[in-house]
Amino acid sequence: MTVTPSTRATDRASRTVTLPSTLALSLARTQIELRQFFRERDAVVFIFAYPVIMLAIFASVFGQDGTTVGPEPGIPFGQYFLPGMVATGVLLSSFQNLAMSIAVERDEGGLKRLRGTPMPPTAYFLGKVGSVLVTSLAQVAILLVVASTLFGIDLPTTADRWVTFAWVFALGTASGAVCGVAFSSVPRSGKSASAVVTPIVLVLQFISGVFFTFPSLPLWMQQVAALFPLKWMAQGMRSVFLPEWAEQMEPAGAWEHPMTAAVLAGYLVLGLVLGIRTFRWKRRDDG
């Protein structure tokens, strides 16, 4: 049999491996990210237990004598602070988790090795976002079950409340994830990531109505908090879990859903732009 150049070209073409689609690679990457996340037991315990523990403290310590928040008939302390715990849980699972874990991966050379594989960068980032969505859903589900069963906190019973919860949760998780990816380039090393990221998250929690009733904060602090997404996530969640009349307690006297959506969507776009422009696959000293 005579082998011609056209025959060899046909053989090479037949041996060409077709890579899976970006969606398939993203789903596979999500599974890998989830396995890696749950292997870090200390991080898992902190991210899942922190909102539950803080809610238990507020509901047990501040609400033990029946004290309520706001005008009569008032809102039980546990009920009022549940939305803030949901919002801060999303922030921990998305922004803090990714900003720290990606910095560590870069420092250890993991990102550099991934960049040398045929996997498209989009699949890596979608895998990160997918893992954040799964862990955030699990975290919020645990928090709501504990709040309802152990502390008797009422959960929404109408579809429109859950629709509001869905879009605030989705926008908050997505914006937190992309901002976490973008911010991961700020720490100079994986070792310093925790020292850089954690104080920022703590400050945002204190000024955004997570640990205190938002109207009780100084006006200047409210104005600073309004520049960041956690305040709007917490306010959006309050519109889900608090009675309708509680919107009178907000600084604007309303839930401001359009503004909440605009701010979270704006941070989603900002995080994408900054991430594209600043993301690094290698350490600073690696050229």
Rank of each mutant, 00 (worst) to 15 (best):
R284P: 00
Y80P: 01
G63W: 07
Q205Y: 10
F95N: 01
F206V: 11
V210W: 14
G275P: 09
S208D: 07
E256Y: 00
G110S: 12
W167R: 12
L98N: 11
Q235F: 04
L274W: 12
I47Y: 12
A226F: 01
A265D: 09
L19T: 10
L55P: 14
D65A: 14
G275F: 06
L264V: 05
Y80D: 03
G176P: 03
M249V: 01
G287S: 12
T16N: 09
L204P: 03
V224C: 01
G78K: 03
L268H: 06
K231I: 01
V90P: 00
R106C: 03
R284D: 14
L55C: 09
S94T: 14
A13H: 05
W162Y: 12
E244F: 05
G176S: 05
P73Q: 02
V178M: 03
L270K: 04
P218C: 01
P120N: 01
E33W: 05
V69F: 10
A103T: 06
L114F: 12
R188Y: 03
V168W: 13
G275S: 09
L155T: 08
G74E: 10
L19E: 15
G271R: 09
Q139K: 01
V3L: 12
L19H: 15
L23R: 14
F151Q: 07
V90E: 08
S101K: 12
E256M: 12
A49T: 02
S6E: 15
L98F: 05
G109R: 07
P251L: 06
L25T: 02
A254C: 00
F62W: 11
V210Q: 08
D160P: 00
F58A: 11
I276P: 00
R41H: 11
A262P: 02
V201T: 11
Q223E: 14
A59S: 13
A170G: 05
A252L: 14
Q31A: 13
A177W: 06
P199M: 07
Y80H: 13
V273M: 10
G180D: 11
S216F: 12
F46S: 03
M54E: 07
F37A: 08
S93Q: 15
I142N: 00
M221C: 07
A24C: 00
F77I: 14
R113Q: 15
Q79P: 05
R41A: 03
A265M: 09
M1A: 14
T198C: 07
T4D: 06
T164Q: 14
W281E: 04
A141D: 07
M100L: 13
S184E: 05
E247Y: 02
V129G: 07
I53R: 03
V201Q: 09
G110T: 08
G266H: 02
L19N: 08
A43K: 10
S136V: 04
V273F: 04
V197G: 14
S21R: 02
T88D: 12
I32T: 15
E247M: 09
A141I: 09
G109D: 06
L126K: 09
L219E: 15
A226T: 00
T158K: 08
L55F: 03
Q222V: 00
S239C: 06
G127E: 13
W281R: 10
T7K: 12
L27I: 11
A177T: 13
M237A: 04
Q36G: 15
G287H: 13
W245N: 06
T117V: 02
Q139C: 09
